[in-house]
């Protein structure tokens, strides 16, 4: 790490539950410093009681997402210099999720909606059957492949204004996962998925504002997946299957 060139003022959300406030810390500024480095510095050298969540530090696990200057980001891969304007750095817990303490949110509502969206595997065969062939050039497989690299970081969920206004809305990540399974040759739950995503909190609530696709750190396109679900559900409805 390079020697510090200056000190950065960092406002960090502190508190339990929904009650809290921003506290400012002076953190040495380095080149190539990530937002997670800044949070870790505060916990290691200034206040060990700061709570936050991370694991892999390389953008694979999806644990460290936070609001950085009001925008949802994966903090381990977000360089401070790229997000700081006028030396202000404000770090808060992810939007649209209940706060446990400081920067750690309760992810339960996020993952519960994956199950509600039937974004779970529906087995089409037993261990006695031959393995289903997964053809990489198949049109359906390509649709599934477009969304399978999701790391469950909830950045899209925090970016979504529909989630903010509609507590029942399943959200971009759960719907994208449902779409990948809908297009998976090994999944036997197409009808179950369509029924799950066509109810009160389903895909039809999406306003296509595109926050999910704009902020997805893996550069996926949940909005396109949701459009696919809308189209599939519409076809099923017209055929009398919904």
């Amino acid at each position: 790490m390079n020697s510090p060139i200056k000190t950065r003022h960092v406002a960090v959300w502190r508190g339990e539950g929904e009650i809290g406030h921003f506290e400012t810390y002076d953190v040495p500024a380095y080149d190539n410093q990530t937002v997670l480095d800044v949070v870790s510095h505060i916990q290691h050298y200034i206040d060990p009681s700061l709570s936050y969540r991370f694991a892999c530090r390389v953008g694979m696990c999806g644990s460290c997402a936070m609001m950085v200057n009001g925008e949802p980001r994966w903090t381990c891969r977000t360089h401070v210099n790229k997000v700081v304007g006028q030396d202000v750095l404000e770090i808060a817990p992810l939007r649209n999720l209940p706060v446990i303490k400081d920067l750690a949110t309760n992810m339960d509502p996020f993952f519960e909606k994956w199950v509600k969206a039937e974004a779970v595997h529906h087995s089409s065969s037993s261990r006695d059957d031959d393995m289903t062939a997964v053809l990489p050039n198949d049109a359906e497989r390509k649709k599934a492949d477009a969304g399978i690299e999701c790391i469950n970081c909830a950045v899209c969920y925090a970016a979504c204004d529909t989630v903010a206004g509609n507590a029942d809305y399943l959200g971009p990540a759960a719907l994208q996962r449902a779409w990948t399974l809908y297009n998976d040759a090994r999944d036997a739950g197409k009808q179950t998925i369509l029924e799950a995503v066509s109810g009160v909190g389903g895909c039809h609530n999406c306003h296509a504002q595109g926050g999910c696709s704009h902020y997805c750190p893996s550069e996926l396109n949940p909005m396109q997946a949701i459009a696919g679900l809308k189209q599939a559900a519409t076809r099923a409805l017209l055929k009398g299957k919904l």
Binding site: N166, D168, S198, G199, V200, G202, H204, N205, K230, A233, T234, L237, L242
Partner: peptide, 9 residues
């Protein structure tokens, strides 16, 4: 709040 039926309507 929108079901597939309300959406289609």
């Amino acid at each position: 709040m929108l079901t597939v039926r309300l959406y289609m309507l």
